[in-house]
Amino acid sequence: MLKKVVPLIETVDLQKSYFSGDLETPVLHGIDFVIQEGEFVSIMGPSGSGKSTLMHILGFLDTPTSGSYLFRGEKTRVLEDDALARIRATRVSFVFQAFNLLPRTTVLENVILPLLYHPTIPASEREERAMKAIAEVGLTERTTYLTNQLSGGQQQRVAIARALVTEPDIIFADEPTGNLDSASGLQVMNVLQELHDHQGSTIVLVTHEKATAEYAARIIQLLDGRISSDSRDFKRKDAKTNTDLK
C-alpha cells in the first residue's frame, strides 16, 4: 500500500473579501488546489483576478476570510501575528517585481537580512550561508557591491539569493521579470528553473503573461477569483534555449 504523501500546500474553499465600511468586495470565491513539494507552478491571470491576494495568503502575509489553508497538512487560519512572522522567517520566501532590496546597502547585507530574523540559524553561520546563496545566483564577484550599483537583472538575482538563504519550503515569485528587459528576465527564469531542476525547490510563480507562466511545469489560471483551468498539458519552455521572453 502506498503511503499517503502530505501535500505542501492544500486549500479548501478558500475565500477572501475586503471590507471597507459595510461594503464587502469579494476577491477570492472558493479556491481548491494542491501543490506538492518540489513542484514549479505558475499562477496566472489578468490583473484583478485575485492572483496576488492568493499569493499573499499562501505566503502568510495575509489570512483568508473563510475556507482552510493547510501547510504540510496543518491548518493555519488561527495563527497570531508573531507566529505568522516566524513562518515567514523559516518556511516561505518572496521574490518581488520591484526587487525590494535595501538601498545603499551591500549585496551581502541584503542576503543576510532574513537570517537576522531567523529564530534558529546561529549568527556565526550567517555569512557562510549568504555566500552560498549568492554563489547559486552567480553573483559571488559582486558580494561587496551596493545594490544600486547593480543592473536590474543582477538586483533580482540578489533578491533570489535572499529568498534562498533561509532554505525555505517554498519560494513565491511575484512577477519577477516584470521590471526587466527580456535578456535579464531570461536569466532570472533560468535561475528559477535551475533551482527547481537541481535543488528540488518548490516555486510558485505569479504572472499575468502566458509566455512567462510557461517556464513552470504547471499553470493554474485564475479568473475573477476562481480557478478557470489547472493544466500540465503544455510544453515547458527552457530558459537556457528559449529567447522569446517578452
Binding site: G59, L61, D81, D82, A85, R86, R88, A89, T90, S93, F94, N100, L102, L113, P114, Y117, H118, R162, T166
Partner: peptide, 12 residues
Amino acid sequence: GLRKAVGARRSD
C-alpha cells in the same frame, strides 16, 4: 514591509 516579509515581528 520587506523586513516583515522576511520574518521580522512587530516587536523587531
